[in-house]
Amino acid sequence: MSDTEEDVIERSDDEGEPMTASEVLQKLEEAWITERMSPTLEQNQSELVDCMLDQINQMAENLKRLKKHDFRLAIHKMEIDRIRYIISSYLRVRLEKIERYAHYLLQKEAGITDESMANLTPQEVTYAKDYASNLESHFQTLVLQHVPENLRGFDPTKMSVKPNLDSYIFLRVKEETQGVLIDDSGEGRDEEVDLEEGSQHLMRYKPISHLVQSGAVTLI
């Protein structure tokens, strides 16, 4: 679709080069799949989401200039619906993880000093705090007020659910990476592996989590 293939938008890649809307959409699709496949919450891609929301608004405006029976109308509407589905699914998956790991994520986020490394957006932090607070209030009302006073001590961190970072994930290598340390390969020793560009692997998430963050690998 021309609206997403040719338009150059202000969002730039890591090297500062302008990106077309189709390139932003491709990155958003990768972020969406990675978020779905990852055992934990990945770094937020709010800039990509905002860019594509602006783009689909522009695309919707462009459709108004097409005639009612123009065959391109149905095709472009389907493309807009597809992009909206990707965005809504991406945000829904993130909200589900925030609810599941609220206390863990807030503790982790509290130790981050560089905002560029934050996994949660400010809005997601607010949501996580409200959700955790409501959960604690519900537990207090439902359980603690009905037990003896000496048993009412409550540590919310003890009810914190943590993601399984040792779970296995499928990945595709985008950038060749040498000497990735895979700790305790099952034989009681560490192992180094070289990841060739374009290769696909089944590996534990934890040893390659930093490569997911940097974009050197993408989950599939």
Rank of each mutant, 00 (worst) to 15 (best):
R100Y: 00
E15C: 02
L53Y: 06
Y131R: 08
I80D: 00
D183M: 09
R65E: 15
E79C: 07
F154E: 00
I86C: 02
E96A: 08
N164Y: 06
H201L: 04
I75F: 12
Q55S: 15
I112H: 14
D183Y: 09
D190E: 10
I33M: 11
E149H: 12
I112W: 09
A216E: 11
H210Y: 12
N62G: 13
A132V: 00
S160H: 00
F139A: 15
F170P: 00
D50A: 03
R82W: 02
K162V: 11
T157I: 04
G215T: 04
E149V: 14
A60M: 10
K206A: 14
F154Y: 11
F154D: 00
I208S: 09
R84K: 14
I182L: 15
L66V: 11
V161T: 11
P39K: 11
L142F: 08
Y104G: 04
E109H: 15
T126D: 15
E191V: 15
Q213K: 15
F71V: 04
R84T: 03
L105R: 06
R84L: 09
H210L: 09
K158W: 02
E6H: 08
H138S: 14
F139S: 13
P207W: 01
L195A: 12
L181C: 12
K174M: 11
D130H: 05
R84I: 05
A60R: 12
L28V: 14
D70Y: 07
S214G: 06
E136N: 05
E29V: 13
V161P: 01
H138Y: 04
E99P: 04
P18Y: 00
D54H: 09
D194K: 13
H103D: 08
L53I: 13
D155Y: 10
I56Q: 06
Q145K: 15
G186S: 04
N57T: 11
K174N: 14
K97L: 02
T121H: 08
L211G: 12
L144M: 08
L171G: 05
N134T: 03
K27L: 04
R65M: 12
Y90M: 00
E149L: 09
S22W: 13
E136L: 01
L28W: 06
N62H: 14
N134K: 05
I80T: 06
Q145Y: 12
R82S: 07
L25H: 03
Q45G: 00
Y104C: 09
G111K: 14
G186E: 02
L95V: 13
S12L: 03
L211R: 13
E175F: 01
G111S: 10
T20I: 14
E17H: 07
Y205C: 06
A31K: 04
N150D: 11
I87C: 03
L41I: 05
Q45F: 00
M78I: 03
Y131P: 09
E15N: 08
T34I: 01
V173P: 03
I75N: 07
A216P: 10
M117C: 04
D183W: 04
L142P: 05
E149W: 06
E149C: 05
D184H: 08
T113E: 08
G16Y: 09
A60I: 01
T157C: 04
D50L: 01
E109C: 13
E175Y: 02
Q213V: 06
T34C: 15
R94V: 05
